[in-house]
């Protein structure tokens, strides 16, 4: 039965992410000598088929339905179910955004197949897709295969680069799907002020944790980051509890890999450390000599951040003659 499924399909509610998934999908499909398709869902969809083709799509499936308004998971799962039933892809790549992470498993359940969320690597070995993800609080990676079809994998935004190749063509296919109206009603949407910079790409990251008493104190970190030409980040409680920022670093947030990572007033819970593993040098400043972050640091200073950080900024300014 599995043989009937062929090709790689990509879906994301986010356009940039869709292009990344298509590019990665193209790479996998080339190894499997198969086609790549993209899916677009919406109340109304306008497809830039040429652009999708340039990033690797051979086919573009379009589902338009008034019940897809707001792209709620229940409705999207029904739409994708219809597309998958028709196109029978072997692999379905989706976004590991929160919207993607709630949609993929619901769809997988409907299709009776397996799903791997938040893949950090995808490889084809002996004709099989191997998916790697981070588990056990960030201490371990596990690599999986899936026997069911399609294989569903979600991939964090910006995990893989998008690659444009001119001169490719794709065919658009409309799919009719019966979609029931969702029982979930959107009452209000409050957009977050989205940060402009991508902390994932910064050469230096200065991260603050609950050791910082008030939002204004992040100025200290900004000054330090400025001297170093870096970006400021934070831990999950700073963003999600206190709402001082919209994104955080760690297992459930951004994964960073700068040359220099500085943790300020951060205890070093493994879920945070999971996001900084790729850093070349880790420095930490914490007043508690027993803080676990020191075990995950190359250099550390035990002391009060309110004294250490300004002194460090000053010393660096002199050393770097800024």
């Amino acid at each position: 039965m599995a043989e009937a499924y062929k090709g790689v399909m990509a879906y994301s509610e986010d356009k940039e992410n869709l292009l990344e998934l298509l590019s990665k999908g193209r790479e996998i499909a080339d190894q499997l000598q198969a086609e790549v398709s993209a899916v677009l869902l919406g109340e109304k969809v306008e497809a830039n088929v040429e652009e999708l083709a340039a990033y690797g799509a051979d086919k573009v499936y379009l589902v338009e339905n008034p019940n897809l308004k707001g792209l709620l998971a229940e409705a999207c799962a029904e739409a994708l179910h219809a597309v998958v039933s028709q196109a029978k892809p072997e692999i379905l790549l989706m976004s590991a955004s929160k919207r993607g992470k709630e949609l993929a498993p619901r769809l997988a359940e409907r299709l009776g197949t397996g799903c791997v969320t938040e893949c950090v690597a995808l490889n084809v070995e002996e004709g099989q897709l191997r998916m790697k993800r981070i588990v056990l609080g960030g201490k371990v990676t596990s690599t999986h295969t899936i026997g069911g079809r399609p294989i569903i994998a979600t991939i964090p935004p910006r995990m893989f680069e998008k690659k444009r190749v001119e001169g490719r063509k794709a065919e658009a296919v409309k799919v009719e799907a019966e979609i029931s109206p969702s029982k979930v009603e959107i009452v209000e949407a409050k957009p977050k002020a989205v940060a402009g910079v991508r902390i994932e790409e910064a050469p230096v990251v200065v991260c603050g944790g609950r050791g910082l008493k008030q939002k204004e104190d992040f100025k200290l970190l900004e000054e330090l980051a400025e001297v170093l030409g870096g970006q400021v980040g934070c831990t999950r409680p700073i963003a999600a509890d206190r709402g001082w920022f919209t994104e955080w670093v760690g297992l459930s947030g951004k994964k960073v890999q700068p040359a220099l990572y500085i943790a300020v007033g951060i205890s070093g819970a493994i879920q945070h450390v999971a996001g900084i593993r790729g850093s070349k040098i880790v420095v930490s400043i914490n007043k508690d000599p027993e803080a676990p972050i020191f075990a995950d640091s190359d250099y550390g200073i035990v002391g009060d951040l309110y004294k250490v950080v300004p002194a460090l900024t000053e010393a660096l300014r002199k050393a770097l003659k800024k």
Partner: peptide
Amino acid sequence: STLKTVKLEGFAV
């Protein structure tokens, strides 16, 4: 259960 785990590796940083 169609998911198989083929490898588990600890991070050694």
